[in-house]
Design a protein around this nucleic acid. Structure first.
Lengths: 169, 169
DNA sequence: CGCAGACAGTCAAACGCTCAACCACTCGGA
DNA sequence: TCCGAGTGGTTGAGCGTTTGACTGTCTGCG
């Protein structure tokens, strides 16, 4: 689902946009493979997790982030940042998690503007139940399919891109 | 935004689920880097394209797929498959593209149940305008950041995963 | 002290996606 | 030829996300 340019488009576009640096055939192929494989994998992981535990990948990530901090709590904005989520989105998501009794909101003592999202025991238990399911999905669809060299390359590429994306953001 | 398991979760989860094959520290790191870099890249590409052309990545993909076929038309279900989209989602999306005058629906001559989505000249022109923007994004945020070896590895990994995901689906 | 501006978070409206029900058409067999 | 199952596609309700406006709080400066 994305991006690629047909030869016809290519000729016309190039004229319009002061010599666009089009992708060559190999680059197209690499891009497509990357894009498609990611979309399929992401979809698969999310569906397996949701089907078997009732927790979407997005919720799961929130629970994970909270579980990994001291006191199992975080400021809303910090939580949003770690989840690569907008504040608004996180605010809505936390409201829904609150309804499930998995997270609790609490005024931040140091800053009256802030709210703390606190992981409840029920939330932690839910995470404990979901984690094995998710890990098994990741292992079977990703790590089981790749050689150690491919895994190393994956990490290398990911970290390279991460450096670029974080730097210039 | 996703998935990772804290040490605490790890111990408890393992007990519950008949020896879960947890990720070790290196695997966690690789998975996180991959996941985060993809999420950030995907978001970046979509936003740049949407901001500068008013076309989301999802719509762009539909236009690309149509532009690459003979007659610039496809059966709805084939188009959905190529876009890795559900039929319902595609049907809604095509309706919106129809409102913009970029796609036209037409009954399929060979099968009265089917519908053809046809790319209009306006739609093609919109794609021509958007393509350089999108390609430049992909190049600057992805290919410009990676060595030729990394690009080759990316393709290799993508195709390996794609084989797995398509096979077992 | 008092106020302007920045900041944290929430909320409402518009939009897109998902799921399941649904309609229309085709195909194969009695 | 007629019926029933299967297929192709659409629709609507419900839900989650985005955007931008808004409230309340904090901070720094005159």
């Amino acid at each position: 689902m994305t991006s690629d340019v047909s030869p016809a488009t290519r000729a016309a576009g190039a004229a319009a946009a002061t010599t666009t640096r089009w992708l060559d055939a190999e680059e197209q192929r690499a891009w497509r493979a990357w894009l498609y494989s990611w979309m399929l994998l992401d979809d698969r992981l999310d569906r397996e997790l949701t089907r078997e535990t009732g927790i979407s990948h997005a919720y799961y990530e929130i629970l994970v982030q909270l579980s990994e901090t001291e006191g199992r709590q975080l400021r809303m904005s910090q939580l949003a940042e770690r989840c690569l989520s907008s504040r608004s989105r996180l605010s809505h998501a936390v409201s829904r998690l609150e309804e499930r009794g998995w997270v609790r909101r609490q005024v931040c003592p140091e800053d009256g503007r802030g709210q703390l999202a606190v992981l409840t025991d029920e939330g932690f238990a839910a995470l404990e139940g979901a984690a094995p399911v998710h890990v098994e999905s990741v292992r079977s669809h990703l790590f089981d399919q790749l050689s150690p060299e491919q895994v190393a390359a994956m990490q290398d590429i990911g970290e390279t891109l991460l450096r670029h994306l974080n730097d210039e953001a």
